[in-house]
Amino acid sequence: MIRLLGVSKRYPGGRDAVKNIDLGIARGEFVLLTGHSGAGKSTLLELMAGIERPTTGSVTVSGQNLGRLSRAALPFLRRRLGLVFQDHKLLFDRNVYDNVALPLRIAGFASADIPKRVGAALERVGLGGREKHDPVGLSGGEQQRVCIARAIVHRPTVVLADEPTANLDDAYAREIVTLFRHLHEAGVTLVVSTHSIGAFGGANARQVELRAGEMTNPQGART
């Protein structure tokens, strides 16, 4: 489903965010990217989403080598992914419904389908009936759940989540982990970065640890 071969990313200024990463993720697999802040977890997710391009190596998602995709084609790849951000990236001038509906509008879904899909996604994250609410009035955990609803509303086969439990207290973090477990059980391929592996203790996930941009357990690469 996702394959990284010899991937390195060097930012302007000479800092190597990730170095020589070989990693394979199978369809329906749940992978946890762990490591301290600055270990390269977010960069690795951005490389998988085509947000960043590798300095060396290749990233293949669903059979498509992202390095060979044109700039114009990349947005169409991202539409097939679900992205969850640490800072939620919700639009506070819109209500919950409009936030969750955004990927559907971008992808050109029929108007009649949008309310049904948004309703279903919100039900799935436990926010059914909250469509009219303003995100600013929601708790941190609820905002993250809206972000997850937005990531799954178009039913992607791959969800990439960057520190989805960061800044949440234990109760909210457990809710989010439960949500990811349900997504995994439904067959979604999940790649989640976290620096607190304890929060995902009950999840049946493969752990890939990064330290200073390198994998500490290359034997877990499964390329």
């Binding site: 989403a49 947000i51 114009a72 947005p75 169409f76 790849l77 991202r78 539409r79 992914l81 992205l83 951000f85 990236k89 639009l91 001038d93 955004l102 990927p103 971008i106 992808a107 937005r150």
Partner: peptide, 16 residues
């Protein structure tokens, strides 16, 4: 700005 950035991240084309 935020709306544009988020839209681009989740697959909006420049045309959109």
């Amino acid at each position: 700005r935020e709306e544009i950035e988020v839209s681009k991240l989740i697959g909006a084309t420049n045309g959109f």
